Structures are given as C-alpha cells and as structure tokens.
Amino acid sequence: MRHRPDPANWLTDLPDETPIQRLSLPGTHRSASAAHQNWTIAEQLAHGVRFLDVDRVDDAVLSPCRTFLAAHPGELVLLRVRDRGPLSCDELPPSLGAARGRIVQLTDLEADRDRFGVQDSLSTGPLEKKALITAQFDEARFQRGAERLHVNVTALAGGHSELVMPYVRAWLQARAEDPGPCGAVVMDFPDLYPSVVPDVIARNFAPRGAGSPVLSRSAHV
C-alpha cells in the first residue's frame, strides 16, 4: 500500500536535505479567485496544496498562509505572484530544511530559466495542452540538464478544467509505480478530482526508482 501522509503535514515527513526541485507539489492556479477555485486558500493548504498562484499579494492571501504555517511549521508555501509591482523575488531555498515555515514569494518565473521550467500556456486546445503537460512532466521526472523547479500549469483559458484534469488524473495513476518528481502541478478546481492532490503528494514517498524520488524521514532511520 502506498504511503498516504496527513495532507496538512506531508512535507514535515520528508528529510531536510530534500532539494526543492525534487519535490512533487500540488498547486492551484489563480488560487484566490472564486472563478478558478472552490476551496479557500486555507482549505487548499489543509488539503495539501503547497504552490499558490496569485495576481497580487494582499492580506487575503498572506493571512491564511501565515496562520497555516504557524500551526504547521514543518511545511512551506511557494507563492507565485504574477503582478510583481514592488515585490522582490525570494531566492529559491536550496533545500526543504531551509524553507520550512516560510512563504517563498516567486516572480518572473518564465524569465528565470536557470531556476525554473514553466509550462503556462492557457490559450491552446485540449489536445495541444495535454501534449504540453506531458512534456513538462517528463522534464521534471528526468531533469535534463541543470536541476530546476518545473511548474506545470494544467489550466485552460475560461477555467475548463474538465477538458484536461481527467487526463492529468490518468497520467498520475498510470505512473504511480514509476514516479520521479513531477514538479508543481498547478490546477483549477482540484477538489473536483479528489485523487489528484493525494497522488501528487504520494510521489514524494515512493521507493527510489528511475526518477530517484525522495523518501520519508523514517526511511533514513
């Protein structure tokens, strides 16, 4: 049986030395928008989401993140901010241990190709979008070249998650026994596809294989 950690504390179970780039992270697209999410940010974090995507930073975004991290100091939140404004980008921490308890604010991901690989094409048809998602998953699993955090936005323009998310769910299930990291999987309405967030999280606890996923702290004892 695959390890199914507590979704509110799943990062806490992983070793401090785990590189951020080797994690599989459930994420949400337009995380604070009711047009793209049914869960509030607080509910997203409680269900295991650790990558948020927002237009701008305000207290409605930061307050639930701070409250969550105060209660779960072994966790982290990666916060992608699309409208940078005066915000400066945080350095991506070198390891999970250096990031615990933090909100790491990220901007200009597409321009920073040394640290990030980003698939964020929204205005494509479903077939092309599925091909882009697959290519980004493969980049994350096999890490061609220097290691980067791969951000795979599965959303389509207009919030049509039903055209893509069944494919994402099937991809994760088909590769459950040969995982490797899949990067940040950034979704609209993940609550409508209940297996997806747990399946992304579970990839972090699978036995080492071709993709060399990370192991839980208990596996190192």
Rank of each mutant, 00 (worst) to 15 (best):
A184D: 04
L149R: 00
R115A: 14
T18N: 12
G159R: 08
V185K: 07
L132Y: 13
L132Q: 15
H72F: 10
L23D: 04
R56Y: 11
L109V: 09
R113F: 02
V153C: 15
M187F: 05
L122P: 02
A99P: 09
K130F: 12
P190A: 11
R102L: 14
D53V: 06
L69G: 11
D53T: 09
A135G: 06
L163H: 11
P26I: 03
K130Y: 10
E17D: 11
G74L: 08
V57D: 10
A42G: 15
L156K: 07
D13M: 02
G48F: 04
C89H: 14
L132E: 12
L109H: 09
A219L: 01
R115L: 05
A135K: 02
F189G: 01
L106T: 02
E43F: 04
S161I: 04
G97F: 14
T154S: 15
S31T: 11
L127F: 15
L156Q: 13
L52Q: 08
S218N: 12
A174N: 14
L96E: 05
V185E: 07
F205N: 02
L25K: 08
H47E: 04
A135N: 10
A42C: 10
I103A: 10
G183W: 13
V200W: 05
R22H: 15
V200Q: 02
P166K: 12
L156S: 05
I41K: 06
R102H: 13
S88T: 12
R56I: 00
Q21V: 07
T107G: 08
D16G: 13
A135C: 02
A206F: 09
S31L: 09
Q143D: 08
M187S: 03
D138T: 11
L92N: 09
E17P: 03
V196T: 04
G145R: 05
L69T: 10
R144E: 04
L87I: 07
P86F: 12
F142S: 06
L87V: 03
S161R: 15
D13P: 01
I133H: 09
P198N: 12
D120P: 00
S88E: 10
S161N: 09
